[in-house]
């Protein structure tokens, strides 16, 4: 009985993680430009993979009584580095001149940069 409960918990973590990962890919295919795609991948994939790793950790802890500290390290590492890589790609895309999608409403960064250029040229 308790075995089935454990399997249910681990399975829930893993299935939700897999579905989140799939949803991230749907977002990456459907969204109109780099920045919005970056949203989908850097968030949903992170949480999805984190949940799968937590499920794996629980599985090895509950069934094989083997607490794998390297998995904890991997979870911490992925949680720490995912926003950094998302921000880096976003900045690189903006600075290398990738256009925002046509439905974009405001771009205050471009406005402020133009203002800075005018101030410098004066």
């Amino acid at each position: 009985m308790i075995e089935i409960t454990y399997e249910f918990i681990v399975g829930l973590f893993i299935v939700v993680g897999g579905l989140l990962t799939l949803a991230a890919t749907v977002g990456a295919i459907r969204f109109p430009d780099v920045y919005t795609r970056n949203h989908a991948i850097s968030k949903s994939t992170t949480l999805g993979v984190t949940m799968i790793l937590v499920g794996t950790l629980l599985y090895f802890f509950l069934f094989e009584e083997h607490f794998n500290s390297r998995l904890v390290l991997a979870i911490m590492f992925i949680l720490m580095t995912a926003p950094i890589s998302g921000h880096l790609i976003g900045r690189a895309a903006y600075n290398s001149g990738v256009k925002l999608a046509e439905r974009t409403v405001t771009d205050e960064l471009e406005r402020d940069r133009k203002k800075g250029k005018q101030a410098n040229s004066l």
């Binding site: 989140l20 949803a23 991230a24 920045y35 919005t36 989908a40 771009d107």
Partner: peptide, 16 residues
Amino acid sequence: VLKHVLKPKMDIKPGI
């Protein structure tokens, strides 16, 4: 983000 991804009609307004 999931809500925006799975909506059949995309009505997002991105911006900076």
